[in-house]
Design a protein around this nucleic acid. Sequence first.
RNA 1: GCCCGAGUGGCGGAAUGGUAGACGCAGGGGAUUCAAAAUCCCCCGGUAGCGAUGCCGUGUGGGUUCGAGUCCCACCUCGGGCACCA
Length: 860
Amino acid sequence: MSRYDAASIEAKWQEAWDKAGTFTATMEGGKPKYYVLEMFPYPSGKLHMGHVRNYTMGDVIARYKISTGHNVLHPMGFDAFGMPAENAAIASGGHPKDWTYGNIDTMVEQMKPLGLSLDWSRMFATCDPEYYGQQQALFLDFLEAGLVYRKNAVVNWDPVDMTVLANEQVIDGKGWRSGAEVERRELTQWFFRISDMAEELLEAIEGLDDWPAKVKLMQQNWIGKSRGLQFAFGLIDGPEGHDRIEVYTTRPDTLLGASFLGISPDHPLARQLEKDNPKLAAFIAECRKGGTTEEALEKAEKKGFDTGLRVRHPFDTAWELPVYVANFILMDYGTGAVFGCPAHDQRDLDFVRKYDLPVISTFAPLSGDHIPPEQSGEAYVPPKSEKVHWLKPFAWDEDATGDEAIDAAIAFCEANGVGQGVTKYRLRDWGLSRQRYWGCPIPVVHCETCGVVPEKKENLPVELPYDEGDKPLDLTNPGNPLARHPTWRDCACPACGGKAQRETDTMDTFVDSSWYFARFTAPHADTPTDMAAADYWMNVDQYIGGIEHAILHLLYSRFFARAMHITGHLPEKCKEPFDALFTQGMVTHAIYATKAQNGRPVYHYPADVEERDGAVVVKATGEAVEVIPSAKMSKSKNNVVDPLAIISSFGADTARWFVLSDSPPERDVEWTASGADAAAKHLARVHRLATDAAQAEEGPQGADEALLKEMHKTIRDVTLGIESFGFNAAIARLYAFTNTLAKSQAGSEAKRQATRTLAHLMSPMTPHLSEEIWALLGGTGLVIDAPWPEADAAMLVEDSVTLPIQINGKRRAEISVAADASKEEVEKLVMGHEAVQKALDGGTPKKVIVVPGRIVNVVV
RNA sequence: GCCCGAGUGGCGGAAUGGUAGACGCAGGGGAUUCAAAAUCCCCCGGUAGCGAUGCCGUGUGGGUUCGAGUCCCACCUCGGGCACCA
């Protein structure tokens, strides 16, 4: 009897699959296609358990679909541009390119032993010139189609390093390296016109039947369709060219509760006024401090500056309102000006209390105790669908909902020439310019005579220079090396041939990941896509990735698919490129921290700490460690577990089985070392059962049928589990069937059949072990090529069922009845039951509820 | 601050509105063994009881229902996203 030796088994079967070309995707054989894709990784250089979990899930689906007769496309690549490579180069002096490709090699080496059903011939990295050159071609086509344009936008500016910072490089409003207070500064940047598609992107969400509801909801909220009124306040004695202020409001029904008018510090009027008002200029400068994130803006203290100007209320020209410049009003949304209604907006209320402006309630609850906002300091903001009592209606009943009042207010205003009802979206255009080296160069040039000119397609790719011309690339110098390169910038204008300079901005890495799924269908085509291949393989039938990508990556990809269709790079049917989406949870682990002398935390790897006498200490020094509760495994926190250690001690099948077994896939999973032991033990047990199976004798009567019945139920449950991403439940079912098999008295033939089926059902999760058992028990060919087992309906039928009896909703007894017993028969049996008789105490029940096959409830 | 989730034994978790705790881990007891490893068997939410069994129990408080872990409302805690992390 041979023992379970994962290392030799796994190597053997990986070689067999390789030899057979099992995972090379082909369009042949007239089979239906299936495209399964996991979100491709950033090449950090270390495969972590989150990757293993993500790819194993995709692999289970891919292998299952191969078993059910599909041509399967299951590719892998790398999202290889981005800041970590630059950071690594700064920290250790290397080159982003060398670092990135080195990491890719390492990660491929780490992935291969997992035995994933990947078509490695299709692998690419987004930093391959072959890939980003095609991306530049897409950009040029988008530009021609009017899907890209330039405008000003704000960035985080570090005034000391004189460089643009990413949001994550701004910590508490300060630059991460210089520590200087960050400012918001405008730059001219490239934008994709995603907001033009807002309505279409919103409407199409409804059709995404196999997407998680929460992701769809998040996208809907992100697009943020709103209906409101756009109108103007007349400005009294404004500076030249400013006689009115356009305002957009979603609450025109509260117009009679207005107490001030607020404009953005970036509003043209504010810009005009600051020219000869140094105090206002100082205030606006102050407003520009801090980062650009919505979170930072929302959390900042609400501040305003009274311009001294006043506007007339549109309903009553005698009613004047002060005009404030306020730091919480965004120029990007609406018109950059709002009217403040403090009674029904907490932010406005906080603001007016600070500047001693009036608070005017326009509605109150229909009934009940209500302290008006004037006194309570709490804005009254009920849902718009709730009926309220109006103190100041101007076109609707005194009792009406907010929605009704808004409709009536818009109609009234339109009829009286006060603005129009308009629909707006929160979704902004997608700024793609990045002032960074390690990204895809934007393929345009700036010509002294022609202006902005697209590069010619035959000159693509516009390749990143490896060095700074006369000296090696130096990222420790702040700013973009492309901008200071002595020769790379200089070029001939593609239009007039005159002197021109290349654009030195590169693209947002979200661009790279917005079409890689399409590229995988023809990764080496000399156009961005090959229509025949895209037509065959698209859409992605099952996309799997982290919930952290619920909004941006997925929305951008949906935009890109549409833009690629418009520019002739994808067929119409690809407008929604991901048919089904599954968002898996993260792998978490406790964080181990000690404090350095300067008070900064020092993080330790789980492998470097141990428990001694109930306390956790650093192995090497014995220093006590603070254990911070589980969080997403993260490089910066060092709370990562190396999957390679598990693979080398237990084998890939154990690692795969473990990451799928304990936790529902959509939920976070906490890594524990004991779980891996258990998985290894179980696989060894299955292996042992398989080697024993051949030796069993004939068993007692009925044992064969009992085992085979259980086998068919397992087939049904495991199949359903895989199809519904219930991998943990499928595995629990396989554990249960293994227990049944181990205890079964069935004869050798039935046992062999059951064990072979067990191996088959396990094969998506533990493919190597399954091949081994399959071969051992006389299966034909490779298990991966064998058709998936089907449950025999006749074997699933049960003769009798056990029904729990509830009395007043509490379980009191149970009875066994024929599976096909009628409601009446069941009721009769129940009424005769001792426990029911006792509860009734001679009386009659109020109600008897019989749910066939489920439960009986007697109400006394 | 805003948007979206999650919360069930000592632990990971299971449960189309229908027997809460499947399956696994840890723990306890036993078999096998000269002994151990490995393996196999049994027990395992709390509480009262010798026991039969009763009562309590799915973050907290309400509600809907014959029946709620599941649906609704409010709250608490934790996690994800917030447009330049990927």
